[in-house]
Protein backbone atom coordinates (compact mmCIF):
# COMPACT_ATOMS: atom_id res chain seq x y z
CA UNK A 1 0.00 0.00 0.00
CA UNK A 2 2.55 2.54 1.20
CA UNK A 3 6.17 1.52 1.13
CA UNK A 4 9.28 3.44 2.09
CA UNK A 5 12.60 1.91 1.06
CA UNK A 6 15.83 3.35 2.43
CA UNK A 7 14.25 6.78 2.39
CA UNK A 8 16.21 9.86 3.28
CA UNK A 9 15.01 13.44 3.32
CA UNK A 10 17.19 16.52 3.51
CA UNK A 11 16.15 20.12 3.61
CA UNK A 12 18.24 23.29 3.69
CA UNK A 13 21.46 21.31 3.84
CA UNK A 14 20.39 19.30 6.90
CA UNK A 15 19.32 15.66 6.88
CA UNK A 16 15.96 15.20 8.61
CA UNK A 17 15.39 11.51 7.90
CA UNK A 18 17.84 8.80 6.97
CA UNK A 19 17.58 5.25 5.71
CA UNK A 20 13.92 4.77 6.62
CA UNK A 21 12.25 1.59 5.47
CA UNK A 22 8.63 0.78 6.22
CA UNK A 23 5.71 -1.09 4.70
CA UNK A 24 2.19 -0.16 5.69
CA UNK A 25 0.20 -3.34 5.14
CA UNK A 26 -3.53 -3.24 4.54
CA UNK A 27 -5.49 -3.11 7.80
CA UNK A 28 -2.45 -2.42 9.97
CA UNK A 29 -2.34 0.10 12.83
CA UNK A 30 0.85 2.07 13.43
CA UNK A 31 1.89 4.68 15.90
CA UNK A 32 4.77 6.93 14.94
CA UNK A 33 6.37 8.57 17.91
CA UNK A 34 9.42 10.60 18.76
CA UNK A 35 10.27 13.97 20.25
CA UNK A 36 9.10 17.21 18.71
CA UNK A 37 11.11 18.01 15.61
CA UNK A 38 12.17 14.39 15.12
CA UNK A 39 10.60 14.27 11.67
CA UNK A 40 7.19 12.65 12.29
CA UNK A 41 5.30 15.17 10.15
CA UNK A 42 7.95 14.96 7.42
CA UNK A 43 7.54 11.19 7.34
CA UNK A 44 3.76 11.45 7.12
CA UNK A 45 4.13 13.95 4.25
CA UNK A 46 6.36 11.48 2.45
CA UNK A 47 3.59 8.91 2.91
CA UNK A 48 0.99 10.95 1.02
CA UNK A 49 3.25 12.41 -1.65
CA UNK A 50 3.45 15.94 -0.27
CA UNK A 51 7.24 15.58 -0.22
CA UNK A 52 9.59 13.71 -2.51
CA UNK A 53 12.42 11.83 -0.81
CA UNK A 54 15.94 13.03 -1.47
CA UNK A 55 17.18 9.42 -1.17
CA UNK A 56 15.54 6.02 -1.52
CA UNK A 57 12.05 5.28 -2.83
CA UNK A 58 8.51 5.93 -1.69
CA UNK A 59 5.87 3.78 -3.35
CA UNK A 60 2.25 4.81 -3.03
CA UNK A 61 -0.11 2.06 -4.17
CA UNK A 62 2.80 0.50 -6.05
CA UNK A 63 3.76 3.65 -7.96
CA UNK A 64 7.01 5.41 -7.25
CA UNK A 65 6.18 8.89 -6.00
CA UNK A 66 8.79 10.37 -8.36
CA UNK A 67 6.87 8.97 -11.33
CA UNK A 68 3.54 10.44 -10.29
CA UNK A 69 2.11 13.26 -12.37
CA UNK A 70 0.28 16.00 -10.49
CA UNK A 71 -3.10 14.46 -11.33
CA UNK A 72 -1.83 11.10 -10.06
CA UNK A 73 -0.89 12.75 -6.76
CA UNK A 74 -4.45 14.08 -6.54
CA UNK A 75 -5.79 10.55 -7.09
CA UNK A 76 -3.49 9.20 -4.34
CA UNK A 77 -4.82 11.85 -1.95
CA UNK A 78 -8.32 10.49 -2.52
CA UNK A 79 -7.11 7.11 -1.27
CA UNK A 80 -5.24 8.53 1.71
CA UNK A 81 -7.20 10.47 4.33
CA UNK A 82 -5.06 12.96 6.24
CA UNK A 83 -5.88 14.51 9.61
CA UNK A 84 -3.66 17.44 10.53
CA UNK A 85 -3.13 18.79 14.01
CA UNK A 86 -4.35 22.22 12.82
CA UNK A 87 -7.14 20.54 10.80
CA UNK A 88 -6.74 22.82 7.73
CA UNK A 89 -10.34 23.80 7.14
CA UNK A 90 -11.77 26.32 4.74
CA UNK A 91 -13.18 28.84 7.17
CA UNK A 92 -15.72 30.24 4.71
CA UNK A 93 -17.44 26.85 4.41
CA UNK A 94 -19.67 25.23 7.02
CA UNK A 95 -18.57 22.13 8.90
CA UNK A 96 -20.80 20.00 6.66
CA UNK A 97 -19.26 21.51 3.54
CA UNK A 98 -15.75 21.05 4.89
CA UNK A 99 -16.48 17.40 5.60
CA UNK A 100 -17.91 17.03 2.08
CA UNK A 101 -14.96 18.85 0.47
CA UNK A 102 -13.19 15.72 -0.86
CA UNK A 103 -16.49 14.69 -2.47
CA UNK A 104 -16.93 18.12 -4.02
CA UNK A 105 -13.45 18.24 -5.55
CA UNK A 106 -13.73 14.72 -6.92
CA UNK A 107 -17.00 15.61 -8.68
CA UNK A 108 -19.09 13.42 -6.40
CA UNK A 109 -22.86 13.76 -6.26
CA UNK A 110 -23.49 15.53 -3.00
CA UNK A 111 -27.21 14.90 -3.19
CA UNK A 112 -26.74 11.17 -3.60
CA UNK A 113 -24.18 11.15 -0.80
CA UNK A 114 -26.22 13.29 1.58
CA UNK A 115 -27.37 10.27 3.65
CA UNK A 116 -23.77 9.09 4.03
CA UNK A 117 -22.71 12.60 4.91
CA UNK A 118 -25.35 12.81 7.64
CA UNK A 119 -24.37 9.40 8.96
CA UNK A 120 -20.72 10.38 9.04
CA UNK A 121 -21.46 13.68 10.76
CA UNK A 122 -23.50 11.77 13.32
CA UNK A 123 -20.72 9.18 13.73
CA UNK A 124 -18.27 11.89 14.80
CA UNK A 125 -20.94 13.51 16.97
CA UNK A 126 -21.24 16.76 15.05
CA UNK A 127 -24.85 16.57 13.81
CA UNK A 128 -25.88 19.69 15.68
CA UNK A 129 -22.71 21.55 14.56
CA UNK A 130 -23.03 20.77 10.85
CA UNK A 131 -24.02 24.31 9.92
CA UNK A 132 -21.44 26.00 12.13
CA UNK A 133 -18.23 27.45 10.71
CA UNK A 134 -14.81 26.04 11.70
CA UNK A 135 -13.76 29.01 13.88
CA UNK A 136 -16.86 28.36 16.02
CA UNK A 137 -15.78 24.81 16.88
CA UNK A 138 -13.86 23.62 19.94
CA UNK A 139 -10.54 21.80 19.52
CA UNK A 140 -12.15 18.36 19.90
CA UNK A 141 -14.94 19.21 17.47
CA UNK A 142 -12.40 20.41 14.91
CA UNK A 143 -10.42 17.18 15.17
CA UNK A 144 -13.57 15.07 14.77
CA UNK A 145 -14.64 17.13 11.76
CA UNK A 146 -11.15 16.68 10.27
CA UNK A 147 -11.42 12.93 10.83
CA UNK A 148 -14.83 12.85 9.16
CA UNK A 149 -13.38 14.75 6.16
CA UNK A 150 -10.46 12.31 6.02
CA UNK A 151 -12.75 9.27 5.80
CA UNK A 152 -15.59 10.54 3.60
CA UNK A 153 -13.97 9.12 0.45
CA UNK A 154 -13.59 5.79 2.22
CA UNK A 155 -9.80 5.87 1.82
CA UNK A 156 -7.59 2.82 2.21
CA UNK A 157 -5.18 4.62 4.52
CA UNK A 158 -5.69 7.24 7.23
CA UNK A 159 -2.71 9.29 8.36
CA UNK A 160 -3.19 11.42 11.46
CA UNK A 161 -0.64 13.98 12.59
CA UNK A 162 -0.95 14.68 16.33
CA UNK A 163 -4.74 14.36 16.20
CA UNK A 164 -5.01 14.65 19.98
CA UNK A 165 -2.50 17.47 20.34
CA UNK A 166 -5.08 20.15 21.14
CA UNK A 167 -7.73 18.16 23.01
CA UNK A 168 -8.24 16.92 26.56
CA UNK A 169 -7.83 13.31 27.62
CA UNK A 170 -11.51 12.43 27.33
CA UNK A 171 -11.67 13.80 23.80
CA UNK A 172 -8.44 12.08 22.79
CA UNK A 173 -9.97 8.76 23.95
CA UNK A 174 -13.04 9.48 21.86
CA UNK A 175 -10.93 10.20 18.79
CA UNK A 176 -8.89 7.07 19.43
CA UNK A 177 -12.06 4.96 19.59
CA UNK A 178 -13.12 6.36 16.21
CA UNK A 179 -9.74 5.51 14.69
CA UNK A 180 -9.81 2.00 16.19
CA UNK A 181 -13.31 1.55 14.77
CA UNK A 182 -12.03 2.57 11.32
CA UNK A 183 -9.18 0.09 11.65
CA UNK A 184 -11.69 -2.66 12.44
CA UNK A 185 -13.44 -1.72 9.20
CA UNK A 186 -10.20 -2.62 7.43
CA UNK A 187 -8.59 0.80 7.13
CA UNK A 188 -4.84 1.17 7.51
CA UNK A 189 -4.04 3.70 10.21
CA UNK A 190 -0.88 5.57 11.10
CA UNK A 191 -0.92 8.11 13.90
CA UNK A 192 2.01 10.42 14.56
CA UNK A 193 1.99 11.40 18.24
CA UNK A 194 4.30 12.13 21.12
CA UNK A 195 1.50 11.24 23.56
CA UNK A 196 2.71 7.92 25.04
CA UNK A 197 -0.36 7.67 27.28
CA UNK A 198 -2.51 7.58 24.17
CA UNK A 199 -0.40 4.76 22.73
CA UNK A 200 -0.67 2.78 25.97
CA UNK A 201 -4.43 3.28 26.01
CA UNK A 202 -4.71 2.19 22.38
CA UNK A 203 -2.86 -1.04 23.01
CA UNK A 204 -5.79 -2.22 25.12
CA UNK A 205 -8.07 -2.03 22.06
CA UNK A 206 -5.93 -2.71 19.02
CA UNK A 207 -2.82 -4.53 17.96
CA UNK A 208 -0.63 -1.60 17.04
CA UNK A 209 2.95 -1.39 15.92
CA UNK A 210 4.80 1.45 17.55
CA UNK A 211 7.63 3.10 15.61
CA UNK A 212 9.94 5.73 16.91
CA UNK A 213 12.05 8.23 15.02
CA UNK A 214 15.30 8.77 16.80
CA UNK A 215 18.43 10.35 15.38
CA UNK A 216 16.76 10.59 11.95
CA UNK A 217 16.18 6.83 11.82
CA UNK A 218 13.13 4.70 12.36
CA UNK A 219 13.16 2.14 15.15
CA UNK A 220 10.62 -0.35 16.43
CA UNK A 221 9.58 0.72 19.91
CA UNK A 222 7.45 -1.12 22.42
CA UNK A 223 9.37 -2.47 25.38
CA UNK A 224 9.28 0.86 27.22
CA UNK A 225 5.62 1.49 26.50
Amino acid sequence: MIELENVGYSYGGGELLSDISLKLQSGSFHFLTGPSGAGKTTMLKLCYGALIPTAGHVRLFEADVRDLERDDVAMVRRRVGVVHQDCQFLDHLTVADNIALPLMVSGGDLLAESANLKELTNWVGLTNRANAYPPELSGGERQRAALARAVIMSPDVILADEPTGNVDWEMSQRLLRLLVELNRMGKTIMIATHDLALIRAAKAHVQARVLRISNRRLQLAGADL
Binding site: V73, A74, R77, Q88, F89, P102, V105
Partner: peptide
Protein backbone atom coordinates in the same frame (compact mmCIF):
# COMPACT_ATOMS: atom_id res chain seq x y z
CA UNK B 1 -2.66 29.91 -0.95
CA UNK B 2 -4.05 28.19 2.14
CA UNK B 3 -7.31 27.35 0.34
CA UNK B 4 -5.39 25.89 -2.62
CA UNK B 5 -3.17 23.88 -0.28
CA UNK B 6 -6.25 22.39 1.47
CA UNK B 7 -7.85 21.59 -1.89
CA UNK B 8 -4.70 19.77 -3.03
CA UNK B 9 -4.64 17.92 0.31
CA UNK B 10 -8.14 16.56 -0.18
CA UNK B 11 -7.44 15.41 -3.75
CA UNK B 12 -8.38 18.31 -6.01
CA UNK B 13 -6.79 18.25 -9.45
CA UNK B 14 -5.04 21.35 -10.77
CA UNK B 15 -7.71 21.75 -13.44
CA UNK B 16 -10.45 21.87 -10.78
Amino acid sequence: TQVISVLRLVGARDSY
